[in-house]
């Protein structure tokens, strides 16, 4: 009796010991998770040395994309896009406004992205973070530069009434590469958007829509803009479609937005994209990334929209 009591005093059950009760498999998973948390860089290095990424993808492999359109009935057009774990919902709301004085026959396109505190522990509640602001601006530029939406067709009566398309994307789960997912969601939502037929009455100065008349889809350019992002890790590896774990470890990144036939709509490069080959010679991978983005675009457009 006494010896048992002393033994328990000498060896108090500590919190750490509790993990020994777990099966071996769970213990290893826990060790790996702790290692990933404490030494993310070394963790990723060990993976890429084996020519594989932590989620089992090859370097040039993108995550699978799933697009689901038209599920939100309060929006005039909507889409839900899942790019691996990253989930973005986009809704289009159409309203009517007076066109700008210097562009009497042109409607408006107002894209915005929200990265709410819900989607990642990195984000705080409140006004849009710097990251969300940059993302919104880049998406705006990509949509405007590609001329995807025919803004002239949004005019109801020159100088008096035009449609405003509020394109709002909300990130539900942030697992990296939100730009590609948000652009895909916005494009899919715009393709899904229909507008009621509106007429401007010059006598009453009112714009009314016909409920009975069929709704009309937007006039869109056949060249759908699609983005593909790449990250440079350790000056040696080009990782396509980086995850939230990989993103902070990258020293450079390339994002290419391409239209039909590989026409470059927007190209952005941050940091160095010089990559050392096995023999030590450095090469610029920008052109390789654009070529890979073109292949990715063909796959995505076929999978998501079933064309081209």
């Amino acid at each position: 009796m006494a010896s048992a009591a002393t033994a328990s005093v000498l060896a108090p059950p500590s919190v750490l010991d509790q993990t020994h009760n777990l099966p071996q498999e769970d213990q290893d998973a826990l060790k790996a998770a702790v290692f990933q948390r404490l030494h993310p860089r070394v963790y990723l290095e060990r993976f890429v040395r084996e020519e594989i990424r932590p989620d089992g993808r090859a370097f040039g492999e993108s995550r699978e994309a799933a697009v689901n359109v038209g599920s939100i009935s309060t929006a005039d057009g909507s889409a839900l896009v899942r790019l691996g774990g990253t989930t973005v919902v986009c809704g289009v709301k159409a309203e009517i406004a007076e066109p700008a004085l210097d562009a009497a026959g042109v409607g408006f396109l107002v894209p915005n992205v929200d990265l709410p505190a819900m989607c990642s522990p990195r984000f705080r509640p409140g006004p849009p973070s710097e990251e969300a602001q940059v993302l919104s601006e880049r998406l705006n530029q990509a949509l405007v530069a590609s001329g995807f939406v025919d803004l002239d067709a949004l005019c109801i009566h020159p100088g008096k009434a035009a449609w405003v398309l509020y394109v709002d994307a909300t990130c539900i789960n942030y697992d990296g590469n939100a730009f590609d997912a948000a652009l895909l969601a916005m494009v899919a939502a715009l393709r899904n958007t229909t507008l009621p037929q509106a007429t401007y009455n010059e006598e009453t100065h009112r714009t009314t829509c016909a409920r009975a008349a069929p709704r009309v889809p937007l006039r869109l350019s056949p060249s759908t803009p699609v983005a593909a992002s790449f990250g440079i890790f350790d000056g040696k590896y080009v990782l396509a479609d980086p995850t939230a774990f990989e993103e902070p470890l990258l020293e450079g990144s390339v994002c290419a937005v391409l239209g039909a036939g590989g026409a470059v709509v927007s190209l952005s490069q941050t940091g160095s994209v010089l990559v050392a080959s096995a023999d030590g010679a450095e090469r610029d991978v920008l052109a390789e990334c654009v070529a890979a983005a073109q292949r990715r675009r063909v796959d995505l457009v076929r999978a998501a929209f079933g064309e081209e």
Partner: peptide, 8 residues
């Protein structure tokens, strides 16, 4: 200013 569409 922008307004939601009004239906006849």
């Amino acid at each position: 200013d922008s307004f939601p569409p009004v239906f006849d």
